[in-house]
Design a protein around this nucleic acid. Structure first.
Length: 235
DNA sequence: GCGACAG
DNA sequence: ATCTTGTCGC
């Protein structure tokens, strides 16, 4: 069932170059299965993020599990690794996925949704990091990016909650969502087993104060802290 | 061909 | 992404 999946690990294949990586994306893209997500019913989420060292010789992946209602941290995990793939726009899942999957694997609590820092379907081959992670785990996942990569969008209204479609021609790839009044929007897209409306509403639940979803912010802080040599803190 | 290009 | 403090504004 999973024998042909590209999963990191001893003996598992991993694309050696961009061409092979793109082929992997094109093949796995067919496995993405959007489905309705009842955002208000989500109780536990995991925010994922990766921080790089200056020279990019080392990277730190972090997973922060939080309750969706009170945004309390339930569990965290951190994995340090060396990148297995160069950074290429559209292919960074091949850099971040190995340590992220390891971090996810170490969690004892299974979150309802994985919130990724990057794109889902809003990707050149419709298979961004959120799709890749979601498909490999066959679990709900969505992507939240800080800038646009593919597609075009009109600026959403200034108030929090306003959004506009991110589209390429007639194809809707995601939404530019205003999570804070008057602040630059974030780009939300479907990863796996969620829909755009549900993803949008969940992201709004996770952004009561800052521009980025709290789980992603916490994962970012955690990975940065570890990379900087700071020990696990409680803040 | 040229520029732009998630993190 | 990363290098980096204070500062202006709601």
């Amino acid at each position: 069932m999973s024998g042909d999946l590209i999963v990191p690990g001893v003996g598992d294949p991993w694309p050696a170059d961009p061409e092979a990586a793109r082929a992997v994306q094109e093949r796995l893209a067919g496995r993405v299965r959007p489905e309705a997500l009842e955002a208000d019913a989500v109780s536990v989420v995991a925010g994922l993020d990766v921080t790089y060292a200056v020279d990019e010789e080392r990277l730190v992946a972090a997973a922060v599990v939080m309750t969706a209602d009170t945004l309390e941290v339930v569990e965290t995990s951190v994995v340090t690794a060396r990148p297995r793939f160069p950074y290429v726009p559209g292919l960074f899942a091949f850099r971040e996925l190995p340590p992220l999957l390891e971090a996810v694997d170490r969690l004892r609590v299974r979150p309802d949704v994985y919130v990724c820092d990057g794109y889902g379907l809003a990707h050149p081959r419709r298979f961004g990091l959120a799709c890749h992670l979601g498909v490999l785990l066959d679990r709900p996942a969505l992507g939240v990016a800080k800038s646009a990569f593919v597609g075009r969008t009109e600026a959403p209204a200034a108030q929090r909650g306003a959004w506009s479609e991110l589209r390429e021609g007639e194809e809707v790839l995601g939404r530019a969502l205003r999570t804070r009044e008057g602040v630059k929007p974030v780009y939300v897209s479907v990863g796996h087993r969620v829909d755009l409306e549900g993803a949008t509403r969940l992201v709004l639940r996770l952004t009561p104060r800052y521009r980025l979803p709290e789980p992603i912010r916490r994962a970012d802080q955690l990975s940065r802290g570890v990379l900087a040599g700071r020990t696990a803190s409680s803040g």
